[in-house]
Nucleic acid binder design. Structure first.
Lengths: 185, 185
DNA sequence: TGAAGCATGTAATTTGTTACATGATTGG
DNA sequence: CCAATCATGTAACAAATTACATGCTTCA
């Protein structure tokens, strides 16, 4: 006799969890239930990690289908979708945060790739310098804002300050780099 | 009467040129005719920009179909494919190098994303620090090697030194960053 | 009250990545 | 002469990007 039918009615096909998945987990962990649009707005403020519009909608769907998020849709109106992290998601997030191994990133900067291949430095520098200065200013402003936050704010965790500091130092390197190329003759 | 048949026998459908395309163009411009495998080996030495194996084979094919490269295949043996840049490709490369506008990249570092979301800094630092130190050492070695090269070497163009210097400065920032996190208590 | 723009989503296309597959070469 | 590894490529899949589509709000 056959054994009882396997319960593959379950929602969770295995899926691969990417950095985007953990991004969503982390945000939902601190924000509670949220719409993709709300996630998008938080991410948009950062400047050191982004996610495309279309992915902000598709990634939570994917995660929900696999059981890492719960999904609830409004009945009337715009039928917005609200997502929240489940215990399964929380567990995955915790593991990821607890695992210290991850690839160190490449530089992968387009402007310096052009430089590498012989582009004329000055025109490049004249475009890159103000862009980098603007980014630096933005990070510095965020850093100051952080220092005046109440600790209950979602972002008021020590890692935030650390990462902003790292961002600031990197932008300073770029600013000096392009400045020097402009000055030279 | 109908006009003469339009010559859509031509090879070139329009394709989008990406940073990978220009990478291939630049390499072929200096290396002359080369196989994907040869390109791969040059890129592998760098550490600041990479291309996956599979793309190193597919990208030149794509570019050749559109007319930016010429393609020649060995008759016997492995039937290697050799590519070379055409005038059309050279023109596209020149335009790209001449255009100083390009997006400034994000930090997009996985380890600091974890930090941002509250991961414990020390275990992260203990993994990241040696990785960054190794990369720094590698860049510095390359930089020294560069200084002793003959100017006829394919890589002996000023941009190379500039980009290595940029890489070195960035890695130093990371090294100090993670060092400090280890020292703290 | 209708135009502008914000909010919300899906579809199509292109890229990137992993996994597989197999032909040559070389050193033991 | 055979095992290891280098060299070469394809197929299947996953992710990112662009383009499209349309419902709500708000303010002139």
């Amino acid at each position: 006799l056959p054994t009882s039918t396997s319960p593959d009615s379950a929602m969770s096909n295995e899926i691969r969890l990417t950095s985007n998945s953990f991004l969503v987990f982390s945000l939902l962990e601190t924000m509670g239930e949220a719409t993709p649009y709300a996630l998008k707005n938080v991410i948009a403020d950062w400047g050191f990690w982004s996610l495309h519009h279309a992915q902000i909608y598709s990634e939570p769907q994917r995660l929900a289908k696999a059981g890492y998020l719960s999904e609830r849709q409004e009945e009337g109106g715009r039928r917005r979708r609200y997502y929240a992290i489940t215990d399964m998601g929380r567990k995955a997030l915790k593991e990821w945060l607890g695992d210290p191994s991850c690839e160190a990133d490449e530089l992968r900067d387009l402007a310096s790739l052009k430089l590498f291949f012989g582009a004329d430095p000055k025109p490049l520098a004249r475009v890159q310098l103000p862009a980098r200065q603007a980014k630096l200013a933005e990070y510095e402003a965020q850093r100051e804002a952080f220092d005046t936050l109440s600790p209950s704010d979602y972002a008021a965790i020590p890692g935030v300050a650390l990462v902003l500091d790292a961002g600031i130092r990197h932008e300073r390197v770029w600013v000096r780099f392009w400045e020097r190329l402009i000055e030279e003759d």
